[in-house]
Every structure is written in C-alpha cells, then in structure tokens.
Design a protein around this nucleic acid. Sequence first.
DNA 1: ACCTGAACACCGTTCAAGT
DNA 2: ACCTGAACACCGTTCAAGT
Lengths: 193, 193
Amino acid sequence: MSSIGRRPRADALRNRQQVLAEADAVFREHGAAGSLESVARRAGVAIGTLYGHFPTRHVLVGALLRERHDTLFTWGDELTAGDDPWDALGNWVRAVVEHTATYRGLADLFAASAADAESELHVDCARMTAIGEALVAAARNAGVVRPDLGGEDVFVLMNAAAWARAQLSPAEADRLVGFTLDGFRASGTRSGR
Amino acid sequence: MSSIGRRPRADALRNRQQVLAEADAVFREHGAAGSLESVARRAGVAIGTLYGHFPTRHVLVGALLRERHDTLFTWGDELTAGDDPWDALGNWVRAVVEHTATYRGLADLFAASAADAESELHVDCARMTAIGEALVAAARNAGVVRPDLGGEDVFVLMNAAAWARAQLSPAEADRLVGFTLDGFRASGTRSGR
DNA sequence: ACCTGAACACCGTTCAAGT
DNA sequence: ACCTGAACACCGTTCAAGT
C-alpha cells in the first residue's frame, strides 16, 4: 500500500505551504525562472526541503497554479455551453492571457510543457488547448470564425499575447489580442462594418 | 585625442572575431541568454578577454546583429517608398519576425531594450519602430489599414510572433502573423470577401 | 518521514598581475 | 594595449547524515 491518504507531519505541511507562499511572491517579482534558493531562504527551510516537496520547477509551478487552473478550466467548459460562441471565445482568450501573464516567463514554461509529455504542466496545456478547440468548433458551427481556424491557433495567440503583456506592455498586448481576434472572424462578419 | 581610427593589434582583432563567431553559434544553439563562459571557452580566449571586447551582453548581441540590421533597415526604408503599402507592411513584418527568431530569447532582449534608453540595442528598436510607423502611415493614407493602427502595434506583433516562432512552432507563428495582419486591415478591405 | 546543509558543477563579472 | 585567470558572489541539484 502507498501512503496516499496518510496524514502528513505538521511541520512538513507548514514547510510546504511556506514554500508555496514564497515561491508565489518570488515568481511574481522575478518571473517563473526566479531563484529557488531565494525561495527556500525566504521560506526559512533548507534547499533540500524544497526539493523534497517539489522535485522540479514544473512541479512547484504546477502546485501553485492548480487551484487557479481548476477554476479557469471549469469556467472554460461552461463557456462552451453558452449561447454566444463569439463572445465566449473572446472572453476565454482574454482571461487566459491575463492569467498566463501573472508570472513573467510562464508562457515560456507553457510552451515547453506543451511539447513535453513528461512535464507536470503538460496536462494543463492539453486542457487549455482542448477548451480552445471546443470554443472554436462552436464558433465555426455558428459561422462566426474562418473555417480554417483551429484550437492550436488560439493556444498560440494566448501565449504570445501573455508574453507581450509581461515583457512589453499590458495595454499593447490587449490591442494585439483585439486585432488578432478580428482576424479570426469569418469574412464579412467584422463588427466595424 | 582618442584612439579612434587606430589600427588594432592583430591578435586582438582575431580574438574579437573568434568570440563573435562562437557567440553566434552558441546563441543559435542555446538562445541569446546562452553562457558567455562557454563562448569564451569555445573561442579559445580567457573570460576577461571577452569582457574586454564586449562589456555587456547587449553590446555583444549588438555587434552580432549590426550588419544584418543595416541591411534590414535599409531595405525597410526602401519599402516605405514602394507603391503597394499593404504588401510592404506584410513583407516587413514577416522579414523582421524571421530575423528576430534567429536566437531564441532575442525578442526578450528587444523588449528590454525598447524600454531602456541605455541599452546598446535601444537605437535598433527605435529604428524598427520608426520604419513600422512609416509603413503604417503610408498604409493609412492609402486607406488599407484601420485608422487607429500605430507603429507600436507592429513592433508588438513582430516580437510576440518571433517569440512564438522560437518557442512554439514556426508554422503556427506564421499563421498568427497572417491572422493579425488581417485584423490590421481597414473594415471591408479583407482579401477573402 | 522529514529536514539539514555540505558538496559539486556551473555561471556572471571584476580586477590585479602579467606581456 | 591587450590578455590571463584567480577571486567573489550566486545558482541548480544531489545526497549522506541526522532527528
């Protein structure tokens, strides 16, 4: 039998939570590639303790995002069932862009994880792509997006825009999203005409 | 009097060129954030020699890009004088995206340099933005792009797409460029209708 | 069961000493 | 005028030793 379900030691639980809290702070300040030694230092634990709880950076980031992703993905599934597929797609893209920009460099992590099935973040990327795919399919059925648009296009836009949001300027990144979404529309359905 | 115009020592010149050659190789393999120690090692010089010639990473990258940028920017100026402003804009964007993707992480360097007037790459970013501005102005006069489009939008698209090209997939990044350029068009002028 | 911190390998950057 | 490489500060990651 494994130890699943076993109550963890009280100090271990506290260490784990301290590390998560400080990792969030360090990643917000210095990006998702921020120093793990500084995380351990700020959390008041030895570096080995950090590695004991989170063997890789992907696992640590994955633990930090777990809750936020659960909420985000559940909401994404609900969007799929809505009645305005165009607005659903736009709202989804904007929300994920904002989320992905919370840590500078998170888009790079997602890019690496999408291509690496071993990464702890791979399932998250797959889920994100799947939701995009569903939203695109609904919009395609409604005839509001170009017929050649795919879920992958949405994933690329979201990550590229998140990169721009964190590295260049939030406002400019939002403009980029707006222009590109307009480019996603089916010919002749643009709002401006 | 400064030593400008003075003939550099033969060994110094060779070291400089060796460092440039190996830096290009290392940056192509490992990105623009690749190890400078490995560059020096591969070039057969001490680390201090590298720093003597190139005091910062920006200076080194700037020296590597100088020629390519001269060619690129001269061509960009010529594009401005052409007779099809829409094609000119598209060709410019696609060429710069491909260029910026030669070193993974170069878009990040450009993003940092655009915001930092002290960076050796800042003038390059300013020049890139200025050419984009001129191309957008010409396209706006011709009525082929939305009136609210700016040169900054072009800069953002180019860097975000270069990021996507290097981190995700070249083909997908090109699709993103295509969609976004379509979003740049003035209402009612899309090719597909 | 978990924590500690030394150990190893690597890197960026500076600078006194050489030629 | 230029080159060298030791020195310092920092980091990622592992693992034997402790409790």
